[in-house]
Simulated scan of single mutants.
Amino acid sequence: MAQPLLDRYDCLLLDLDGTVYHGSEAIKGAISGIDAAHAKGVAVRFVTNNASKAPDAVASHLRHLDVPARTEEVATSAQAGARLLGQMVPAGAMVLVVGTEALAAEVNGVGLRTTRTYSDDVAAVVQGHSPDTAWADLAEACTAIRSGARWVACNVDPTLPTERGQLPGNGSMVAALRTATGASPDVAGKPEPGLFTEAARAADARSPLVVGDRLDTDVAGAEAAGMDAMLVLSGVTTPAEILAAPEGQRPRYLADDVAAVTSTAEALAVGARPDWRIDVGDDELRVAGSGEPLDLLRALCPLAWRHGISRASGTTDTAKAVVNTLGVGDIDYR
């Protein structure tokens, strides 16, 4: 008998940007999926790489979008960054903050002092997303890093999904400092496992499921933490990128959005589907049959990953149409 997904896991670790919302708009299906988890007694934790807001502000924003959320259900990369700094430098050390006041407050909360300008007593730099970060902020951090300060990045996501599309994320600003200093930061957020493991511990979860829209942060972070992952297509990742996913970034489940948590685990898992027949060619996967596009993507994944072939072609008009819908037929993305 098919097992409901929510019977298999006791906690959902949900990414936010691209999974639950785009900026000021909730993503279709997110609220119903979260409501279903709560009704089933499955814990929910909102785990975000965005370090710009305090947990209470994140929870308030979610509630404004009609997403049920409590402050204690929110885990941010700012919290993870502050915890990491607390392990790296002595109590009371001075930390130069590139980011919001919410990030500075988290750093203060672990017993460290904060500043916005370089001085000889700066022991570390912490960098998190802020829409107000400017050249002058990066210049202060550059000076500190070049002078030997430790460097922690809350996350390295290159883009931030919004209702306007993909905009520069913290990783883009981190890249500027990498170029200017020749140094690389210690990363506190996803794909490092700590953010997930701490959120699961806080929820007293033994079998959590990570749900997110990015291969290189959400899925890779789940893999690093030893957790299963469901990738949703409501954010930045395309079907072609999923077929080309390297080891360590391959989700167990695929879904359109969070509402899919009400389905069975078997329906969501990558693997063969009876409605689709796939033959492996020298440089493409040949598809016949008919059915849902997402089911075809689930069926293509194991073969694409095993054989290193991420291009598909339809052998019938119906199959060609679905392959084109997925966008995996015209370009070899290997």
Rank of each mutant, 00 (worst) to 15 (best):
V258D: 02
A304V: 07
G226C: 04
G221W: 03
A259H: 03
R306M: 07
G212N: 15
L233M: 15
A288Q: 07
A288M: 08
G291D: 01
P302L: 10
A200L: 09
L297S: 06
A224H: 04
E292D: 12
A220R: 14
L285T: 05
V270E: 02
A202N: 05
M230F: 10
G289T: 10
S310V: 13
T262N: 02
C301Y: 04
T217G: 09
S234F: 11
R306C: 02
A267Q: 13
A205I: 05
D257L: 07
A225V: 12
G194Q: 07
P251A: 04
V211P: 00
V210Q: 04
Y253S: 02
I278F: 01
D216P: 04
S310F: 01
A244L: 09
E247L: 08
A299M: 13
L268S: 13
E266C: 15
V258H: 03
C301T: 08
A288S: 11
L268R: 12
P302H: 10
P302I: 08
D257C: 07
D218M: 06
D204Y: 02
L296I: 10
W305M: 06
A225F: 01
R277Y: 02
R306W: 00
I278V: 07
R201K: 12
A224Y: 01
I309C: 06
E223A: 11
D218Y: 05
S310A: 15
A245E: 00
R252L: 13
D204K: 12
D256H: 05
D282T: 04
L303K: 08
A288T: 09
D216R: 09
V211Q: 02
P274I: 06
P251C: 08
P246K: 14
A269E: 14
V210L: 11
E284H: 13
D218V: 07
S207N: 13
D216S: 12
G194P: 00
G226E: 05
T217H: 14
P239M: 15
V211R: 12
A240N: 05
T197L: 12
L285H: 04
E223G: 02
P293Y: 04
L254D: 00
R298W: 06
L233P: 03
R206E: 10
A229H: 01
A200R: 06
D282I: 05
G291I: 12
R252H: 09
V232N: 13
V270K: 06
F196H: 01
A199P: 01
P208S: 14
A260G: 05
R273Y: 02
E192R: 07
A269M: 11
I309P: 00
A199D: 01
P251T: 05
P239R: 15
A224F: 02
L268K: 05
R206N: 09
P246C: 06
E241G: 08
T197S: 07
W305R: 12
G226S: 04
E292Q: 12
L268E: 03
V236A: 15
P293S: 09
I242G: 00
A267L: 11
P251Y: 01
A199I: 15
R250K: 13
G221T: 11
D279S: 14
V258Q: 09
A267I: 07
L209T: 08
L268Q: 09
G221M: 10
R214D: 02
L296E: 02
D295A: 13
E223N: 08
A299V: 10
L233Q: 13
S234Q: 14
D279L: 12
